[in-house]
């Protein structure tokens, strides 16, 4: 039991370090449970996938924050998060809420869900800002900030004569993106 728990913690640490193998292991072990939870409660397979992936993101961010202590089995934790997320989505769709108790134990996850939905909103804002930015700025920024390529690589890929030119262009793009993002951010926070 003890070794199992430490193994799960190890798995989460690897997840936090963007280890694909860790994500795959979690996926393999727990996806089917969540799929049956969602599909047995008025959900489709796509819903199941969305919910499970959102739960993994919650898990990822918790693991990344470093303050995460897994004081129950990973399975129970994932189940609880998915259950909560699915109930929330059903509520938003104003559908009939099925009685989802009794299938397995759950642990309280309200805080995580709250934090997650906030981050989700920010994610959407950034996504929107990126969308409005247009090419080639978007690809340039993605290459630098998301794919973490260095400036020389980017310069040759995008056809700039040298890294400094690319860098200048990058900062221009970044300024525009910042403007868009903060406009969106203010907009959202005022509403």
């Amino acid at each position: 039991m003890k070794s199992e728990a430490s193994e799960e913690i190890r798995l989460l640490q690897r997840l936090a370090q963007n280890d694909r193998q860790a994500a795959e292991t979690i996926y393999r072990q727990h996806y089917n449970m969540v799929q049956s939870l969602v599909t047995n409660n008025n959900g489709s397979f796509d819903d199941a996938r969305d919910i499970f992936q959102e739960a993994i993101i919650v898990l990822y961010q918790k693991a990344k924050s470093g303050s995460f202590e897994l004081n129950c089995q990973l399975k129970t934790y994932l189940y609880s998060v998915c259950r909560r997320l699915w109930l929330k989505r059903l509520q938003q769709q104003q559908q009939y809420l099925p009685d989802m108790n009794g299938l397995a134990d759950t642990v309280p996850v309200e805080e995580e869900i709250e934090a997650h939905s906030q981050r989700n909103a920010q994610f959407t804002m950034m996504e929107k800002a990126m969308l409005h930015l247009g090419e080639p700025c978007r690809s340039l920024l993605e290459a630098f900030y998301l794919q973490k390529k260095n400036m020389t690589e980017i310069a040759s890929h995008f056809g700039y004569t040298n890294a400094d030119n690319a860098k200048n262009q990058k900062y221009k793009c970044l300024m525009r993106l910042r403007k868009l993002f903060f406009a969106e951010y203010k907009n959202n926070n005022n509403v």
Partner: peptide
């Protein structure tokens, strides 16, 4: 920080989608 998170989540999402289709 927002950018970084956005990138992380975006990457994770595409990884997860990958895994999903693979599985």
């Amino acid at each position: 920080h927002q950018m970084e998170q956005f990138g992380d989540i975006k990457n994770l999402k595409s990884t997860l989608n990958d895994i999903h289709s693979q599985l």
